[in-house]
């Protein structure tokens, strides 16, 4: 650094360090708490002494959550839509971005505007629902994938990246008789791996977290996604929806908080698990997608 070190400077550094440490702890505490909570027993919670780590651990909550056929289906469906959705997005975005990045594409400026408008204006839930209905996609897993295939944002980001690829690559390929499709798939896509990886990650996160479309378009529990079951359990307080029903739970070990926490943990797990390894792509994504000089 360029400035002189002074006592007040050191003091500031110290305070800054402390402050940021606290910020970090505040950011992470709820997760740790929920993780701990998912292993607690009903009794310990009732004593009201639980802050972070349970004294006695119990796997009842996980047993219950993982044995729930809905949660298992939901997990599977979430994975399906995330993989399917991401592949669809990558393909479609590439197909859209390549023509728009070519100067010879007629009216590309207007087309870019045509695409950008959709970022700001939308018709609302009712027409969107009717559309999905008319397409016959109600209660079809495709209804979760097709509407999210392209976003104006991804298209523009990738288009800009393609534009930075030197024209000499394209020219050389043309001399070899390659068409646009060959150029895109053989040259541009391999050259754009980092940005495609970033888009893929963003799409994965988007799909994994999407819940409202599941609420709207999916009617059967077999095709429903994890986030909706999560919402039923965690937000709507319906750990158990059988009204006068019999249940086979060991109630002494059971606590609805632990069940909620366990559901949260298993939902978050895939994201948190991959995040540290792919962190640089996420941050790169912001830099690319964000606003820069």
């Amino acid at each position: 650094m360029f400035y002189k070190r002074t006592l007040s400077g050191y003091l500031f550094d110290l305070l800054n360090l402390c402050f940021l440490t606290i910020v970090g702890l505040i950011a992470i505490y709820p997760f740790i708490y929920v993780l701990g909570l998912s292993f607690t027993t009903g009794e310990e919670l009732a004593e009201g002494n639980f802050y972070l780590f349970p004294k006695r651990t119990s796997l009842v909550a996980y047993e219950m959550v993982l044995n729930d056929p809905n949660i298992r289906n939901g997990y599977l469906n979430a994975i399906l839509r995330t993989t399917g959705g991401t592949l669809a997005t990558l393909l479609m975005t590439s197909l859209a971005a390549y023509p728009l990045s070519r100067k010879k594409m007629p009216h590309r400026k207007k087309i870019v505007f045509f695409i950008l408008v959709t970022m700001i204006f939308s018709g609302g839930i009712v027409p969107r629902y009717l559309l999905i209905h008319e397409l016959g996609l109600i209660n079809n897993r495709l209804s979760l994938i097709l509407p999210l295939m392209l976003t104006a944002f991804n298209v523009i980001v990738l288009k800009n990246f393609f534009q930075q690829i030197p024209e000499s690559f394209e020219e050389a390929a043309r001399l070899d008789g390659a068409g646009d499709f060959t150029i895109l798939f053989r040259i541009f896509i391999p050259l754009s791996k980092p940005i495609l990886a970033t888009i893929a990650l963003w799409t994965c996160v988007l799909h994994w977290n999407q819940w409202f479309d599941g609420l709207l378009y999916i009617t059967s529990d077999k095709k429903q996604i994890l986030q909706i079951f999560l919402q039923r359990i965690v937000v709507e307080n319906s750990v158990n929806r059988i009204r006068f029903g019999i249940q086979d739970l060991d109630m002494t070990m059971f606590s609805s908080e632990a069940v909620k926490a366990a559901t949260v943990v298993i939902t978050v797990l895939p994201l948190i698990a991959v995040y540290p390894f792919l962190q640089k792509y996420f941050i790169k994504g912001i830099k690319l997608g964000g606003i820069k000089e």
């Binding site: 977290n209 819940w211 937000v235």
Partner: peptide
Amino acid sequence: GFRRGIQIVTYIPYLLSWVILGGIFLLV
């Protein structure tokens, strides 16, 4: 190193949906 650590940690909440976060906060 510490800076990166804080950056990673404070970034995590952004990855999660409000269904999850709502659930967490209702508990906390």
